[in-house]
Design a protein around this nucleic acid. Structure first.
Length: 559
RNA sequence: UGGGAUGUCGCCAAGUGGUAAGGCACCGGAUUUUGGUUCCGGCAUUCGCAGGUUCAAGUCCUGCCAUCCCAGCCA
């Protein structure tokens, strides 16, 4: 069981005090106006795992109180994403399902003299509200008799008044230091059609009024939300205290920030409108769908949110931790394959032209049950261009004139010569192979330090590879004041064509079957790559999910 | 004297009066048919600052400082 945190400590206390009959019920309540992102993944984890921990359950609730911004498309996508991440909700609920109850409770509040219909305009309400340091003043309509409020409120509901002409407000305290308590608006008039309620309603409830009642109606015991709702809690409690209803406890925790990423709906929308990303599932974007397309696994995402912990500290988690969690999962589960991204031709001069061999290569050295695949070998191969240097430095464990390396799973080869073009670029490397090293090993005690990946020129398949980098060039993009474009990383996507991959990769399909990942591979010595949505057997396309740790690159940088 | 919250290693984060867990990152070194993985070792005499209480304080008290959130008929 996971280590505890302040939320679970609170719940332990509640349970010990005998609250809620020992039950723990939570909810994940997204507003269906956008796709989920990794910030939601943390909230989802907190909500679902908390319920699970105490043998309770979690509901998935669409917080659909604003028909102007919400769409069915998002309702479908949210369910899909939560399910993909492996969470099971007990009930799928909708805030709009309890609109009738909310209306009835609003009437109760009016009858108790705790709510009134206000004719002030939006601007006037703002003026009357006062400022952070000055108290507000009462609306002239604040003391309307209950009977008049009741009549007006019903007529608001019936659509007798135009949008914006009246609101229902709670009567609390216009001088409160907490601005949320200065007679908050409970209902606004919106002659808008709701995708689930049709034209039934001309008034729609505000968040503060609606949320506690939604929680209450579902029997939620612990309403977990982010820090910015901390000063809404007194209002949450106030509304429920006035009514004869179940009273959940709201607990706030810090939302997730990840370096080099922006977790905001508005931002994705803008980038999309400007054509800077391809959509909600652009592999550079940390939406659940983007991460999924990029090749992230639900397990890696969950491990990540589990690892960062739950607290009230405003924190920014290193992107490097996300990558670590990803690699940890993929290392254990991704199938190994060889791919050459920047091909350089190698000719084995002592290997017969008409001969070919098929070697066995393990699918995953971390998993003995993963089996092997066949890898073809012949006289002409491709290796990575950066694995050859004409005049290599001493610690270069790769190919160069006179140097011997191992071709993974195949043979030892020694470079005897190379050819260049008019520009001095190397066009071909000439080698000899040692027949005694078949399989990539000899028992003569020979030290062959370097091992390179390769593909057979005769058998390989052409592929496109999309290498991704950070979308932003600054660590804390949310602190940037100007336009997004100014801090976008121009190299966030680099498309590499003409890559040569081993034939076993041409069948690469994408999917998750029985808990094993398909379509996410480790390209030996390069990184983890996943089959993209755009891929086809005729034209394979791979996304770089995340690179392997590269200590050689680090050493080079130091020199 | 608006209200609410937070400050423990570069980044997260335990710690609930008894003498600073863990992870990431980073730095060494070993193993390695991936310069990957794995493995060993290093990495806060100090907990925003200053006083105080106590045999003993990151933990209690007082004061100060810094940062974040709130003035939608958004959620």
């Amino acid at each position: 069981m996971e280590k505890s945190n302040f939320i679970w400590d609170f719940i332990d206390e509640d349970l010990k005090a005998g609250k809620n009959g020992g039950k723990v019920v939570t909810r994940f309540p997204p507003e269906p106006n956008a796709y989920l992102h990794i910030g939601h993944a943390k909230a989802i984890y907190v909500d679902f795992v908390t319920a699970e921990r105490y043998g309770g359950y979690c509901n998935l609730r669409m917080d659909d109180t604003n028909p102007l911004k919400e769409e069915q498309e998002f309702i479908d996508a949210i369910q899909e994403d939560v399910a993909w991440m492996g969470y099971r909700w007990k009930h799928l609920t909708y805030a709009s399902d309890v609109f009738d109850d909310m209306y009835r409770h609003a009437v109760e509040l009016i009858q108790k003299g705790l709510a009134y219909v206000d004719d002030l305009s939006a601007e006037e309400i703002r003026e009357y509200r006062g400022t952070l340091t000055q108290a507000g003043k009462n609306s002239p309509y604040r003391d309307r008799p209950a009977a008049e409020n009741l009549d007006l409120f019903e007529r608001m509901k019936n659509g007798e008044f135009p949008d914006g002409t009246k609101v229902l407000r709670a009567k609390i305290d216009m001088a409160s230091g907490n601005i949320n308590m200065r007679d908050p608006v409970m209902y606004r008039i919106q002659h808008a059609s709701h995708y689930r309620q049709g034209d039934k309603w001309c008034i729609y409830p505000m968040y503060d009024w609606a949320h506690g009642l939604e929680d209450s109606a579902e029997g939620v015991t612990h309403s977990l939300c982010s820090l910015e709702f901390e000063d809404h809690r007194p209002l949450y409690d106030w509304f429920l205290a006035q009514l004869p209803v179940h009273r959940p406890r709201q607990i706030e925790f810090a939302r997730l920030y990840v370096s080099y990423t922006l977790l905001s709906k508005r931002f994705y929308r803008v980038l999309m409108e400007k054509g800077l990303i391809s959509g909600w599932d652009d592999p550079r974007v940390p939406t659940i769908r983007g991460l999924r397309r990029r090749g992230f696994t639900p397990e890696a995402i969950r491990r990540f949110v589990e690892t960062i912990g739950i607290s009230k500290t405003h924190s920014v988690v290193d992107y490097a931790l996300l990558e670590f969690c990803l690699r940890e999962d993929l290392n254990a589960r991704a199938t190994r394959r060889m791919a050459v991204l920047d091909p350089l031709k190698v000719i084995i001069e002592n290997y017969p032209e008409d001969k070919e061999e098929w070697f066995e290569g393990e699918n995953n050295p971390e998993n003995p049950d993963s089996g092997n695949r066949k890898i073809p070998f012949c006289r002409e191969l491709y290796i990575e261009r950066e694995d050859f240097m004409i005049d290599p430095p001493k610690k270069f464990f790769r190919l160069g004139p006179g140097k011997e390396i191992r071709l993974k799973h195949a043979y030892y080869v020694t470079c005897t010569d190379y050819r260049t073009n008019d520009q001095g670029e190397v066009t071909e490397v000439i080698c000899t192979y040692d027949p005694a090293s078949r399989g990539g090993w000899t028992d003569d005690g020979r030290k062959v330090k370097g091992t390179s990946h390769w593909v057979s020129a005769r058998h390989c398949v052409d592929a496109e590879v999309r290498n991704y980098g950070q979308l932003f060039s600054v660590e804390k993009p949310w602190e940037h004041e100007g336009e997004f474009e100014e801090i976008l990383n121009p190299d966030s996507l680099s498309v590499v064509t003409g890559c040569k991959v081993e034939p076993a990769l041409s069948e690469g399909a994408r999917g998750e079957v029985n808990g094993t990942i398909e379509g996410v591979f480790q390209f030996l010595r390069l990184g983890y790559y996943s089959v993209d949505l755009d891929s086809s057997p005729e034209k394979p396309v791979f996304n770089r999910t995340v690179g392997l740790k590269d200590t050689w690159a680090k050493v080079q940088k130091q020199d």
